[in-house]
Simulated assay, not measured.
Amino acid sequence: MNKSVFLGTLAASALLAGIASAGTLDDVKARGELICGVNTGLTGFGAPDANGNYQGFDVAVCKAVAAAVVGDASKVKYVPTTGETRFTALASGEVDMLARNSTWTFSRDNDLKLDFVAVNYYDGQGFMVHKDLGVSSAKELDGATICIQTGTTTELNLADFFKANNISYTPVTVADDSEAQRQYLAGACDSFTTDASGLAAVRATMPDAENHVILPEIISKEPLGPAVRHGDNNWGDVVRWSFYALVAAEEKGITQANIEEVAASTQDPEVKRLLGLEGDLGAMMGLDKEWAKRAIAASGNYGEIFAATIGESTSIGLARGLNALYTQGGLQYAPPFR
């Protein structure tokens, strides 16, 4: 290939890459609003409150991205999606991103052409049973009827677990968490299986929570996180680093309450870069200097969000566990802002 043809090809490739990466970020800026695919209703993670406003652990990621991109955490349109509709909604462009307890898997990454930009909750699949069933292990569920959401990794893991343990079950398929809860409470199934965090969220809304037991077995790895479409790398970077800004803020002790004070007094070079006081990280993604500062101010740092929405002092009552910072023995860890 001669030099001019090579350079022409290179230029064309760069142009196409530029067109692909410009897409969603420009759309969101022009619209002045982020369209975020969320759960139809999972208490603590993503559900409408009494006034119909979406709140929760996953919803906070939507708010952080909106604050970073359009300057206002309230400029989000929430689109409820089920296990079966969520990826179609993202692939078709109905939503700009997904933030709704979805597991990062090989096939979703490659076959469905989605990019999971980070893991905001490290989870695993568990089982909940009625206390009076008298079961203390998932291996005792031979012959049980089990409520299971269609279009989920849970469905596949369940089949694998029972096959591996040479036991049988009868599936009762449901569309979403609320239907699963209704069927389970009505006695249509002996057990309900989903991510352990989801079980805790569902149990917290039950009138007789003490009569339902989450069994000790965790039968899978469920790295849950926000997702975007393949090929829109710039937008993926915006969502990824908006989330990591929340984790970095916790690492650095930056909170919703002290962020202005930290910005005025910090001598930490990375904090200065993060808050837009030095350098220009935002420009590298097509954002302004204070994008991360706004993302953090929207709902607080990662730890604050966890504590307020699903933590041990909430009705969900989840311990940090694997989702503690790496300095506390967990897996949450922000790449360097430099």
Rank of each mutant, 00 (worst) to 15 (best):
N2C: 11
K3F: 06
L7M: 14
G8H: 11
A11H: 06
S13W: 14
L15C: 13
A20Q: 09
D27W: 02
V28K: 13
G32D: 10
G32W: 08
E33A: 11
T43L: 09
G46D: 00
A47Q: 06
A50K: 14
N53I: 03
A60G: 07
A60V: 13
A60H: 08
C62A: 02
K63S: 02
A64L: 01
A66C: 08
D72G: 03
T82S: 09
E84Q: 15
E84A: 15
R86Y: 04
D96S: 09
L98K: 00
T103K: 00
F106H: 10
F106Y: 13
D109H: 15
N110C: 09
L112E: 13
K113A: 10
V117C: 02
V119E: 12
Y122N: 01
V129G: 04
H130K: 12
D132E: 13
D132V: 08
V135P: 05
S136I: 13
E140K: 07
L141Q: 03
C147E: 09
T154R: 04
T154I: 03
L156Y: 05
A159G: 12
D160K: 15
D160P: 04
F161K: 07
K163R: 14
N166C: 12
V172A: 09
D176V: 08
D177M: 12
A180K: 02
Y184P: 05
A186M: 14
T193W: 04
T193M: 05
T194Q: 01
D195G: 13
R203C: 11
A204E: 10
P207Y: 11
D208L: 11
E210R: 08
N211D: 12
V213R: 08
K221E: 13
P223Q: 05
P226E: 04
D232R: 00
R240H: 06
S242N: 09
L246G: 00
T255N: 05
Q256C: 02
A257E: 13
N258K: 06
V262R: 02
A263S: 13
S265R: 10
T266R: 01
Q267M: 11
L275R: 05
E278A: 12
L281A: 13
G282P: 08
E290S: 11
R294Q: 03
R294H: 07
A295T: 05
G300C: 08
T309I: 04
S313A: 14
G317M: 05
L318N: 02
G321V: 01
L325T: 07
Y326D: 13
T327Y: 10
